[in-house]
Simulated assay, not measured.
Amino acid sequence: MEYVNLDAQVGDLSGVLDPARYLSHLPSVSGDLPPGARAFATDTDHYDFRSRRCVKDLTLRAVRGAGGEEMEVEFQHNCWKHDQDLLIRYVGVSGFVIDPVDEDRGTDLGAVILDEILPHRDGCSHEIACWDGTLTLVCRDLQATWTETICSSKS
C-alpha cells in the first residue's frame, strides 16, 4: 500500500490500521479515478471501521474470470459487523496479481484488512490487503455492489 498504513504506531500501541494518509490524499486524486472507482473509494462508510459498509473484516469468497478482461471478486460478510456481501466487478482488466503469504493458500487470503484505490494510466489500481496475502487489480473501472445477506450466527 502506498498511503494506507497497515502497521501504524499510536503511542505505545503498534500494528494499528491507519487510512488517514490515504484519506487526506484521496481528494487530490479522486477526480482522476474512473466513476465507479471514485464512488467506491470516496464512500464515507468505506473506511469507517464502525460502518456496516467498511471493507475491513470482509472475507474473500471467490475470484471469477481471472486472466480475462472482466473479473468479479466476491467478498463475504462478517456477521458481527456486516449485513451485506460485497461484489466488485472489474472491466478492462490489464493487471491481476494474487500474492498469498503461503503459496498453498491460493485465493484463500483470509479477512480483508483494508484496501486502496489509486489512479493508474489504465484507469485505476485496486490493492486489497488481507491477513494472509494481497490481491491487486488494474482495470479501466470497477463497480462495487453491496447485496443483502442473512447472518445466521447473530444472536
Score class of each variant (00 low, 15 high):
D83V: 13
L118I: 06
H46G: 01
C139L: 04
C124N: 05
C130H: 06
L137V: 15
D83S: 14
G133S: 10
L33K: 00
F75A: 00
S155D: 11
K81F: 03
V10L: 08
I98D: 00
R89G: 02
E74H: 08
V73F: 00
V10H: 05
V93M: 10
L13K: 07
V101L: 15
C151D: 06
S51Y: 03
T145W: 12
D18K: 10
I113D: 01
F49W: 12
L87D: 02
A8H: 13
E116K: 03
E103Q: 12
P34M: 14
T147D: 13
E70S: 15
T42W: 05
D115G: 10
D108Y: 08
S28L: 14
L114S: 02
A41S: 09
D48M: 10
T44A: 15
R38W: 12
V63C: 13
V93D: 04
P34Q: 10
L118N: 03
H77D: 02
A129Y: 03
D57C: 10
E2I: 08
R52G: 07
R61N: 07
G31I: 13
M1C: 05
C151V: 04
I117R: 03
D43I: 08
G110F: 12
V112C: 00
V4W: 06
Q76C: 05
D122F: 14
L13T: 04
D18P: 07
Q76A: 15
Q143W: 11
C79A: 09
T147L: 15
V101T: 10
D7N: 15
V29N: 01
H120N: 15
C124D: 01
L6T: 05
A62K: 08
L109D: 00
A37W: 09
L26C: 03
V10P: 02
D85F: 00
H77P: 01
F40D: 02
F49I: 14
S153Q: 09
G133Y: 11
D85A: 06
H25K: 14
G95K: 02
C54V: 03
G95R: 02
W131N: 04
R38K: 15
Y47Q: 06
R61M: 10
P35G: 12
A66G: 09
L13V: 07
D99Y: 07
D43V: 07
F49H: 07
C79Y: 00
G11P: 01
Y90G: 08
E72Q: 12
F49N: 05
N5H: 09
P27T: 03
E103V: 12
V97D: 11
S28H: 11
D7E: 13
A41T: 04
A39T: 07
A41G: 09
G15Y: 11
D132A: 14
S152C: 08
D115L: 15
P19G: 06
D48L: 13
R50P: 02
S152G: 14
R53E: 11
K81R: 12
T145E: 15
T44D: 13
R38Y: 11
G133P: 08
S30A: 15
K56G: 01
G106N: 03
Q84R: 14
P27D: 05
I88A: 01
R53P: 03
V29I: 14
V10N: 02
L135I: 07
D48V: 07
A37E: 04
G11D: 06
R21Q: 14
